[in-house]
């Protein structure tokens, strides 16, 4: 293959990557209301997500321990991923019980063909072995990931998004998530 052809292919690939990143980062993926917010790992980041929805003027109901029956009438399921031992203690459940709950909830949402979104807001504090089972479980069945960059320093979410062809928005700070969130639900 000639050098010019190699350069051409490389340039095309680069362009395609840039365009797809731009499209994804512009939150072109649209979602409908009503929205249910739940946790995967029982961190208090659900409360933060609730506040983001308020700031973005998007109606959403938050149930940290949501079950399949709570999906009735819901169009978008937002899963706030990240493990918290205190949160599990507060919920009175074990990590295994939480993994089972999240797994069944996600399966039910997929069966109902709901759109699933994963939020990862807690940065490094919500990474590591305990959290990553929840992060992966939720992210890989999502159609959109909204991630605070500090939690993606090792490209955990970016790699997963590229592999599964999932749209991803990386924000510097939690507060920066308001704008893409509002765009997600723009009519």
């Amino acid at each position: 293959m000639k050098r010019a052809q190699v350069l051409m292919i490389a340039a095309t690939l680069l362009l395609l990557t840039a365009v797809s990143t731009l499209l994804f980062s512009q939150s072109k993926v649209k979602f409908d209301q009503p929205v249910l917010i739940t946790s995967a790992g029982q961190s208090a980041d659900v409360t933060i997500a609730g506040m983001l929805f308020k700031k973005a003027n998007v109606q959403a109901r938050a149930i940290s321990l949501a079950k399949a029956s709570d999906l009735e009438g819901i169009k978008t399921l937002v899963v706030v991923a990240g493990f918290s031992s205190k949160g599990l203690g507060a919920a009175g459940i074990s990590r295994e019980q939480e993994l089972d709950r999240v797994k069944s909830l996600l399966a039910a949402a997929q069966e109902k063909k709901l759109k699933i979104v994963t939020f990862h807001l807690g940065g490094k504090a919500r990474r590591g072995n305990q959290s990553d089972d929840f992060n992966k479980m939720a992210a890989e069945v999502s159609s959109y990931l909204l991630v605070v960059k500090q939690g993606n320093e090792d490209q955990f979410f970016s790699k997963l998004a590229a592999e599964k062809k999932i749209a991803i928005e990386l924000v510097d700070k939690i507060a920066d998530a308001v704008q893409p969130l509002a765009k997600m639900f723009e009519k």
Partner: peptide, 12 residues
């Protein structure tokens, strides 16, 4: 200043 928010477990 990054902080994690944690809930107080009611049963602890």
């Amino acid at each position: 200043l990054q902080y994690a928010l944690e809930m107080s477990p009611p049963n602890f």
